[in-house]
């Protein structure tokens, strides 16, 4: 596993370098200029496609503006925001999105950890295992959505006929006919595709747990469960939190699976899907822009909450996340 230097140590190292050998000021200002020149293209490009359109969205969100009726454009202040915030659909989609996020991340964390433990312990077929686990990671989400949609399909799926011995599954269970079933199918596809990513991040964290400490705990008579909860988990806390942060924010933006599997039917539309429909299908640029702004703010809020609540160490994240 690649070991990386946390930025703090890196910075300390550089300061040490400078401390050991005083650097002339023209040299350091040249370094400063070169640094800025090298990052400039990347920064400009990143801002061009995010910050600038976001400002545009902020501006458009204050207008009644439909692309199909451009002459009808009029300034309406915060009316669009009020319309959205008092709309049932918006809150239902937010609820659906949060439900998907919480369930998928929780399930992925447990399965991902189990996978990471196996990959950490395994002494044979490491390459084969790495290759296999990267396939769901690399596969296109749309393909995963189709594969699971077909697996759950009434006429062409194997799920019903294989699992009809379970009390809640019958040969004619329609997985896309109601909210709970459709949500289950969507979550299965999401979990299948992203668990490997979770497992790999956790594996990196697991590699940092000191074997000596584990050995010491074993000698002291700690049970398997005690070693897990008292030694392993606390020591890979940073890795777990980073994995949770990235996956949670990613799950909150869920779109592909829903678009392919249900097209938002049966109340399964996520907040991203609702925004997409407003903008692209209904061409409501004003209302849609307001939704975009709200989506952006909710992601920021969510990121902030996760970082604060779980005290995610972002400095370490840069090293290993």
């Amino acid at each position: 596993m690649s070991t990386t230097v946390a930025p703090e140590t890196d910075k300390a190292g550089q300061e040490h370098r400078k401390g050991g050998k005083p650097v002339a000021s023209d040299r350091s200002s040249a370094e400063n200029r070169l640094g800025l020149k090298l990052v400039a293209p990347a920064v400009v490009l990143m801002l061009l496609v995010t910050a600038w359109p976001m400002i545009q969205a902020l501006y458009l969100s204050l207008f009644r503006y439909r692309l199909t009726a451009p002459d009808d454009r009029a300034f309406v202040g915060i009316d669009n925001y009020l319309t959205i915030l008092s709309d049932d659909q918006f809150w239902k989609s937010t609820g659906t999105t949060l439900l998907i996020m919480v369930v998928t991340v929780a399930v992925e964390l447990v399965i991902g950890f189990a996978f990471a433990m196996v990959m950490h312990r395994i002494v044979f077929a490491r390459g084969l295992m790495r290759t296999s686990i990267l396939i769901p990671y690399g596969i296109i989400t749309v393909v995963s959505a189709f594969a699971w949609q077909f697996a759950f399909s009434l006429n062409n799926g194997f799920v019903n006929s294989w699992f009809n011995w379970l009390p809640w599954i019958a040969d004619d269970t329609n997985w896309f006919g109601d909210y709970p079933h459709a949500m289950f199918a969507i979550m299965v596809s999401e979990i299948w595709k992203t668990t490997p990513f979770m497992a790999l991040l956790l594996l990196a964290g697991l590699a940092q747990v000191s074997e000596d400490m584990l050995e010491a705990a074993k000698v002291d008579g700690a049970t398997w469960w005690q070693r897990l909860t008292k030694v392993i988990l606390p020591n890979m806390r940073a890795a777990i939190m980073v994995a949770v942060l990235f996956r949670a924010l990613d799950a909150y933006r869920i779109f592909d699976n829903i678009f392919v599997m249900t097209k938002g039917a049966e109340g399964t539309q996520s907040i991203s899907f609702l925004t997409y429909r407003q903008v692209i299908e209904q061409m409501q640029l004003g209302l849609g822009s307001a939704m975009s702004v709200l989506l952006f703010l909710s992601v920021l809020l969510l990121a902030w909450l996760i970082v604060k609540l779980f005290r995610v160490d972002l400095a370490q994240a840069r090293g290993e996340g």
């Binding site: 496609v49 995010t50 976001m54 969205a57 925004t275 407003q278 903008v279």
Partner: peptide
């Protein structure tokens, strides 16, 4: 971490 969908409207425009 940016929600890509939020850009769809303004980028389309």
């Amino acid at each position: 971490m940016f929600p890509v969908v939020a850009l769809v409207g303004p980028l389309f425009d």
